[in-house]
């Protein structure tokens, strides 16, 4: 074994370290999922054992009594609307910033980017009173607009950067073909910008789905709440029944995980593009 590969045990150790770290990421979710099947006495007996029976009663309770599906639909509607609106508004602006800059347009761009980190806590107090005056509390619209305002800066940043990479010649050719403003967006920018748009859509969806503070403040009626907000009601209502809590948490987690399995590629790209977490 002369000196060529002195670090032989290295990869094995690294692999083991990865496994241990990986286990720390799997365990809480596994714990949550498995304990969701238990009855309350069984849970209190031991939280680490596998459930004796895999009965779905707790999940059924979440649907029949807590009506968590209503909240899931709210979340879905709000998140999808936020994605569509953010993409539409962001794409228009990003196209202008990338391909039709005018005097001072860069300054406008910088101001928009600067607003990216404005904390929601700051804007939420006046917005709450504004919405209240307009009677928009407890409507999905209130949350969608907040999500839109929060998502536009990152969206514009991402799309502008990407659209800049689209060769000018293609746009010019489209203009010669008689495309107007929207024609170029439809025929050139959107098809060629799809990867960045998908990255942004994934992030906006996940952020809106997982957002807590804004819907917590703006949606007070149980049947209008998003699933993440409804969880806080669930946790306090089933304070002494952890298995029910686990079932609810599991149900709320599943859509995000499913999305993740399909759209992982975009997430990785998004992170590397300096997009929002």
């Amino acid at each position: 074994m002369p000196g060529r590969k002195p670090l032989k045990p290295g990869p094995v150790l690294v692999f083991l370290a990865f496994l241990v770290l990986g286990a720390s990421f799997v365990f809480p979710f596994l714990y949550m999922f498995l304990n969701a099947f238990k009855s309350t006495p069984e849970y209190y007996k031991s939280t680490f054992k596998l459930p004796e029976h895999y009965n779905w009663a707790n999940f059924a309770t979440m649907v029949s009594q807590f009506r968590i599906q209503v909240n899931m639909l709210n979340s879905l509607f709000i998140s999808m609307s936020a994605v569509l609106l953010t993409t539409a508004v962001g794409m228009l602006a990003a196209y202008v910033f990338a391909k039709r800059p005018f005097r001072k347009s860069h300054a406008v761009y910088l101001v928009i980017i600067f607003s990216m980190f404005m904390p929601n806590q700051v804007t939420l107090i006046p917005l709450y009173f504004l919405y209240s005056k307009l009677g928009l509390i407890n409507t999905p619209f209130a949350v969608i607009i907040c999500s839109l305002a929060a998502g536009i800066p990152a969206c514009i940043m991402l799309l502008t950067a990407y659209f800049k990479g689209i060769p000018d010649e293609i746009c010019e050719a489209a203009i010669l073909d008689g495309c107007g403003f929207f024609g170029i967006i439809r025929n050139v920018i959107f098809p060629l910008g799809k990867p960045a748009i998908a990255v942004n859509a994934t992030f906006v969806f996940l952020r809106t789905w997982n957002d807590f503070l804004t819907p917590l403040v703006l949606l007070t009626k149980r049947e209008t709440q998003t699933v993440v907000v409804a969880l806080s009601a669930l946790v306090s209502r089933y304070q002494s029944d952890p298995p029910y809590q686990m079932a609810g948490l599991t149900i709320a987690t599943i859509p995000a995980i499913v999305m993740y399995l399909f759209l992982q590629k975009y997430l990785v790209e998004g992170v590397n593009a300096g997009s929002i977490k």
Partner: peptide
């Protein structure tokens, strides 16, 4: 492993918080 480590990011912070509290 990369996919696995990224998992907590896509779950709502409140859910992670409740899990930690439990």
């Amino acid at each position: 492993f990369r996919s696995l480590y990224y998992l907590p990011q896509i779950v709502s912070a409140v859910i992670v918080g409740y899990l930690f509290a439990i």
